[in-house]
Design a protein around this nucleic acid. Structure first.
Lengths: 147, 147
DNA sequence: GTACTTGCAAAGATTTTGCTTCCAA
DNA sequence: TTGGAAGCAAAATCTTTGCAAGTAC
């Protein structure tokens, strides 16, 4: 949001509008934070950031918005190998799927893209006649710095 | 367990004993159920099966045993795309990693092995100098019967 | 015998639901 | 205006912890 309080329209928001979803002040804030987040946010981290822009926003709204985005296939839900408890992490779905590498020692999360991964998905779809909507790959282990 | 109540020693149990882990009646039961389970059990399903053999077994013991097995890297923890809530599923770690395909419509879980997957893991370890201890691949979508 | 494990109760963490009021289209 | 959304409180779900009593080795 700029100094005048204008909110630039972002892809996620556009996507929701085009699907006939009602945009509220809260949804706009949440969706933009997810869109612009560098890392992976869990519901509470998302809520805390949102409170900076709207102190009255409720965790329930955060959960409901995440459910909405999941339903529309606009976010991926991750567990990051449960390195810190049972929460879920979210990221805006990108055009290209990627793998998450979670270091069990330092907690760093790396992302990894690979054409082999794309091939693997193709193989699954062909061999099993399974239509993949979402795919999650998470590896736990030791990163280069820690091993 | 046969008619005399003897419990055959199973790989998981052997593995624990060889690591100096104390084997209790409860652990023997739980570990055998996991070992022999056809599908993927969550903590409560595991507990319910265990109660058939020892009515006094407690859910806390189930969770503690699962934590123990995870710590020793003897089970894999799955989420199966959270098709039914936030619980976790467990399976004895096999020699070969496999991919889980979860049908969002019928809930069926299929497993898929592939040398491409093995290659992908190798690529990650080489490119990122990341030592993979555990890896989880889950795909959600429509199975051949449902699409 | 001793250190580790269990069961019970209670607490903790995360997420969902019911219901009333409010607001976007 | 009107159906969907937000906020609040309470509940539900899944998992962990503290502690006394029991048990494997």
């Amino acid at each position: 949001m700029d100094a005048e309080g204008r909110v630039a329209r972002r892809p996620l928001e556009q996507e929701l509008v085009s699907r006939g979803v009602r945009m509220t002040r809260q949804r706009r804030i949440l969706v933009r934070i997810i869109q612009e987040a560098a890392g992976h946010l869990d519901a509470i981290a998302l809520w805390e950031r949102a409170k900076g822009e709207d102190a009255s926003i409720n965790t329930v709204t955060v959960y409901r918005t995440l459910t909405l985005l999941k339903k529309h296939g606009l976010v991926d839900e991750l567990d990051l190998m449960h390195l810190e408890g049972g929460k879920h992490y979210y990221e805006a779905k990108t055009t290209r799927d990627h793998i998450h590498l979670a270091c069990v020692k330092c907690g760093r999360i790396q992302e990894f893209e690979s054409s082999l991964f794309e091939k693997l998905k193709g193989q699954i779809e062909r061999d099993r006649q399974f239509r993949i909507d979402t795919v999650r790959v998470e590896a736990g282990g030791l990163c280069d710095r820690c091993k």
